[in-house]
Design a protein around this nucleic acid. Structure first.
Lengths: 339, 339
DNA sequence: GTGAAAGCGCTAACAA
DNA sequence: TTGTTAGCGCTTTCAC
C-alpha cells in the first residue's frame, strides 16, 4: 500500500501538498498538481478512506435498516435509496432489522462507522432510537412513521390511499367489503386499515367483525389462510382490501381454489403496486406508493442534517395513487361518479 | 464523543489498559477491568471503529456486488450472505453493478474501506477485477462464474440442472421442446442453455432455430414477447424451458392470453425456485438452487482468504434440484422411467 | 503556493 | 499486570 507520503517523495513535494491535490484544492500550482497526479498514477496510489474518515469524522457511509428484504417493496426502495445516496457521494450499508440490525446500526452510528441512519421499518421507538435522536443524531424514518418521535419522517399517505380504495369499492357497488390487515405495529398497516374502515363507515358501509381478518406475518400462506376464512363464511364478502400486494396475491390464490374470478364475484385490492401487480396473471388493483419520491425526500432530509442545514423535524406525507386494474371493475355508467 | 483517553482518565488507568479491556485481553487484573468497564458506562464510551480500522487495517466490512436487485433471487441471496457475514463479525455493504458498483467496490477494496469483495453477477473479467485478483486481493465470485479467473468461485451446477429439465421434458413425452434464454454473458444463463440443448440432443430431440428464443433483458415484458413469438409459430412448442423463473412467469402470462394451460398443452419450466414459484397461481416446475449453501461456501472461502488460510483457487459447483410442479406433469406410468 | 507539525482514536511493541 | 511510546494515513492550521 502506497501512502500519500510515498507519493510526496516521488513527486518531490511535501505530503501536505499531496493531500491538497487529493481534495482538489485550488491553491496548488497547476504544474505542481500535474507532477503529483503523475506520481499518484505511477505509484498506483489510492487514498486510505479510513484515515480520512478518522481525521474528518465523516465516513460517507449511511446505514439503511430494512425489514424482511424478501418483500419486493424493499428491494425497490433500496434501489432508489442507493442511487440517491450514491449520487450524493455516499455509500449505503444495509442492515436487517430482524437480526438486530436496528440496534447494530445505531451502534455503528455511535462508533462513527456511518454518518447517518435511515430506518425503513421502525415499528416502535426503542431506547436505541430515542436515545440517538435525543442526542441529535442524524436519523430519518421513511416508509413507516412513529408518532411523537422528534426526527424527520417521510412516508406516503397510507390513510388517504386506503380511503381511495374504500371509495372505489363503494362506487363500484360493493356491498360487503372486507379487509385482510397485517400485524399490529407498522404504521403503514395500521393506517391503511383505519383509512379503509373509516371511509367505508362514512359511506354507510359497516365492516362487521367477521369481515376483518388479520395476518400476523406477511407470507403467502398466511394470506391464503385468511382469505379462505373469509370465503368460507355463509355470506362471503364481495370485496377484499389487503394490507399489501403480497397478501392480495395470496387472496387471489384462495379465490382461484374456489374457481372465483377476482374482479367478478369478489373484488381485490392491494397496496404498494410492486412490479408483479401489473403482470397480466395478477392485474391487481392497488395503491401505488411514490417510492422514488420517498427515497429522494428521505435522502435529502438526511443529507441536510449531515450538512448542518437541518430543518425542524416533521412528518412528510406524500400522495398515493389508486391504480385500477382487472381485480376490480366499475360498471361503465359509474365512471363519472367518483371523479 | 468520548475517547478511550477520557475513559482512562476517569478510571485512573493508562489509555493502553482501556484498549486492552476493549479487546477483551486477559492480561488485565479483574479489578482494573471492572473499574474501566464502569468508566466506560459512565462516559457512554463507544470505541471509534474508524480508528481501529486505520490501525489494524481491517474494516470488518465486506462488499457484495449484485446485479439488478429487483430479481427476487438476489434478495434471497443477500439475506443469506448478510446472515453469514454478520455471524462472522462482518458487515455487508451492497453495491449495484449496474451503476458502476463493481468498479466502485474494487476501489473501496484498494482504499481499505472493505476487507473483501463478493461478486454475485460478474459477467466478464474487467480490468478492475483481474488487476485486483492479480494483486491477490480477497475476491470471491458466487452465483456466476468466470472461466480462467484465478480466484475462488462458487456456483450451482447450472449445466446439470438444465440437463435434468431436458430429461424431465423427454421422459414426459414432449416432442417439441423450446427454450427462452437470456442475455449472452452471464455464465448461469449460458450454461443452462447449453445443458438443456446438449442433453436434448443426446435424447434425440433437436431444438430447431425457431424454438430458440432469447430475451436481451430479463423483464416480464420481454419474456411475454418471446413466449408469444413461440406460440405464434405454425407449430408451437409443447414445452418451454426458461432462463429463470421470472421469464417462466412471463411465459405463463403469454399462455394465459391464449387460454392455454401450463402443464397441459405446453409444459413450462423455470430456474431458481424463487419463493413465488411455489405459489398456487404459478405452481411452477423449476430448478432449485442451493442459495444457502452457495452463500455459506462463498463466505467461508472469503473469510479463509482474509485469515490467510486460503486454499488454492478453484470453482466449486453445488448440486441443483429439479422441483416438479403443476406446469409439467408426467403420466403415471412414466413415473418410474426416469429414476 | 508550499512545507512543517500536530493530531484524529486507536493498537501493539517494548519496558518496567 | 500496567504504562510509555510510536505510529496507522490522512487533514488542517500556521508559518514562510
Amino acid at each position: 500500500m502506497t501512502s500519500s507520503r510515498d507519493v510526496a517523495k516521488a513527486a518531490g513535494v511535501s505530503q501536505a501538498t499531496v493531500s491538497r491535490v487529493i481534495q482538489g484544492h485550488d491553491n496548488v500550482r497547476p504544474e505542481t498538481r500535474d507532477r503529483v497526479l503523475q506520481a499518484m498514477r505511477a505509484t498506483g496510489f489510492r487514498p486510505n478512506a479510513q484515515a480520512r474518515a478518522l481525521r474528518t469524522n465523516r465516513s460517507h457511509n449511511v446505514a439503511v435498516v430494512v425489514g424482511r428484504i424478501l418483500n419486493p417493496l424493499y428491494p425497490a426502495l433500496l434501489e432508489q435509496l442507493g442511487a440517491q445516496l450514491f449520487a450524493a457521494g455516499y455509500r449505503m450499508t444495509i442492515w436487517e432489522a430482524e437480526v438486530g440490525g436496528e440496534e447494530a446500526a445505531m451502534d455503528a452510528l455511535s462508533q462513527s462507522l456511518v454518518d447517518g441512519v435511515i430506518l425503513t421499518t421502525a415499528t416502535k421507538p426503542t431506547p436505541a432510537i430515542t436515545d440517538a435522536i435525543k442526542a441529535n443524531a442524524p436519523i430519518v424514518l421513511i416508509n413507516r412513521t412513529l408518532k411523537g418521535l422528534e426526527c424527520q419522517q417521510v412516508a406516503s399517505d397510507n390513510y388517504r390511499g386506503a380511503c381511495s380504495v374504500a371509495e372505489h369499492f363503494a362506487s363500484g357497488g360493493r356491498k360487503r367489503p372486507a379487509v385482510i390487515s397485517g400485524p399490529k405495529g407498522p404504521s403503514t398497516i395500521e393506517q391503511r386499515e383505519a383509512g379503509y374502515l373509516n371511509k367505508l363507515a362514512d359511506l354507510d358501509l359497516r365492516v362487521p367483525e367477521q369481515y376483518r381478518e388479520r395476518v400476523t406475518a406477511i407470507t403467502h400462506q398466511t394470506g391464503v389462510d385468511a382469505a379462505r376464512r373469509l370465503l368460507e363464511l355463509p355470506e362471503p364478502p364481495d370485496a377484499v382490501f389487503c394490507a399489501n400486494d403480497l397478501i392480495a396475491f395470496a387472496a387471489m390464490s384462495a379465490l382461484k381454489e374456489r374457481n372465483l374470478t377476482p374482479g367478478k364475484e369478489v373484488w381485490i385490492a392491494g397496496y404498494d403496486d410492486v412490479e408483479m401487480a401489473s403482470w397480466p396473471v395478477f392485474d391487481l388493483t392497488t395503491v401505488r406508493q411514490p417510492i422514488g419520491a420517498i427515497a429522494r425526500e428521505g435522502t435529502r432530509l438526511l443529507l441536510d442534517q449531515l450538512n448542518g442545514s437541518a430543518d425542524v423535524p416533521r412528518t412528510t406525507l406524500l400522495a398515493n395513487n389508486l391504480i385500477i386494474r382487472g381485480t376490480s371493475h366499475r360498471r361503465r355508467n359509474e365512471k363519472n361518479k367518483d371523479a
